[in-house]
Simulated assay, not measured.
Amino acid sequence: MPFFDIFLAAAILGTAALALFARDRIAAISAFLVAGLLVALSWVRLGAPDVALAEAAIGAGLTAALLLRSARRIPSAAPSPVSDAQWLGAAALALGVTGAIVWTALGVGTAPVYPPLVRDALPASGVENPVTAVLLNFRAWDTLLEIAVLFVALVVVAVISPVRPRTAPLGPMVLPFARVILPLTILLAGHLLWQGGHAPGGAFQAGALLAGGAIALGLSGVVLRRSGIGGLAIAGLAAFVLAALAAELLTGALLSYPVGEAKAWIIAIESALTISIAATLFLLFFGPAERH
């Protein structure tokens, strides 16, 4: 369907331009949200459903929610004029980056390198999903660093904004909605977590979905203890580090799981990561500290 793909690419560029140049904040954020959903659809078209799920949940949904919350807190300011030199500089930078991407893409060989390697090693990974095998086994150190970066982001937010803003409930209809949506998100998050072993899914997608349900509960006016949620936020990183050290003791290599037990280790790590990611995203939205 080349016509659909061309239309999809044009729609992504159009909504991205609207997000950049719209004067109204809500319109710009709405365009950003639509652009994120279209990008998720493009990942589906490229045959990467795992990335599409993460983009739709985190890149579009929760990020747009954070932008909407920030738009309400940051006062409006008069737009400053942009000089012709700044426009030309931005255009030159964009063309340079585009040229570098095109040059790199044309220079890469057409024969795939990594898929055959992953396919050959997949039976020993403990899971059937190649994405999960790469993220939690073959390149587990990359995922560990990603979780560390997510936790550092939460620490930075706590340092630069130690006071949690008060959140007014959105209305009497939100609490009944949250009572329905939260159990559903827990069930769906558990399904995505378990499914990640053999199909698209995993901790990042499950954690983002669980965070959405928790945010709905928080917006309904239910007060949740931030101290306990903060402990959950560090649980994923702590579990990952402990797993690495335990693997070192048992196998002599960090994050090299014992033979025949890789699936159990991966499920345990991903379970902790799901709760930790959900707690971190929740605290990034509402703030990590109570007002004193």
Rank of each mutant, 00 (worst) to 15 (best):
A9N: 10
G89N: 03
L254W: 13
W194S: 03
V159S: 10
A243I: 12
A56I: 11
L273S: 04
A64L: 07
R73E: 13
I74V: 12
S220K: 01
L237R: 01
L37D: 03
F32C: 12
A92D: 07
L255C: 03
G14C: 08
L62A: 08
L250M: 13
L117G: 01
L224D: 01
L38P: 00
A105T: 07
A31L: 02
R291A: 15
S161E: 15
V159E: 07
V44H: 10
R139F: 14
A246T: 15
F285W: 14
F282S: 00
P288F: 11
F177I: 10
A244E: 05
A235C: 01
A27L: 10
A199E: 08
A56P: 05
R25N: 01
T104A: 15
L249M: 14
D24K: 06
A124M: 03
T15R: 04
F285V: 12
I58A: 14
I266A: 04
E248F: 08
A247Q: 04
D120Y: 08
A19L: 03
D50S: 15
A199R: 07
A239Y: 02
Y114H: 02
I12K: 06
T280H: 00
A199D: 08
G89V: 03
P81E: 02
A105R: 11
A71D: 12
A264S: 01
S161H: 14
E55A: 09
L182G: 00
E248Y: 04
R225W: 04
R72G: 15
A22R: 14
R119W: 11
V155E: 08
A235D: 00
A235L: 08
A153T: 13
L41I: 15
A10L: 11
G201I: 09
L38F: 00
E261S: 03
L38N: 00
P123C: 06
V34Y: 04
L95R: 04
A9H: 12
G212K: 02
P172C: 02
R73A: 14
T15G: 04
Y114L: 11
V174R: 06
L187M: 06
A206M: 09
W87E: 04
V34C: 03
L88A: 15
D120W: 06
A16Y: 10
H191N: 01
A64D: 01
L249F: 13
A22S: 15
L13H: 13
L136A: 11
L67M: 15
A35E: 05
G201P: 01
V39E: 02
D84V: 12
M173F: 07
V159W: 14
A153N: 09
I101R: 10
A199C: 06
E261M: 10
F138Y: 14
L41C: 15
N129Y: 09
G99L: 08
L209C: 03
P81Y: 07
L281N: 06
V102Q: 05
R164K: 09
M1C: 12
G36Y: 13
R166T: 00
T15K: 06
V156K: 06
V51K: 13
P165F: 09
L136M: 05
L283I: 07
A140S: 11
G196P: 12
E290R: 14
A94T: 10
L88I: 15
A124W: 05
A48S: 10
P162C: 06
L170G: 13
A105D: 06
G171T: 07
T251E: 07
L281K: 04
V131H: 03
L250E: 13
L41H: 14
A262F: 05
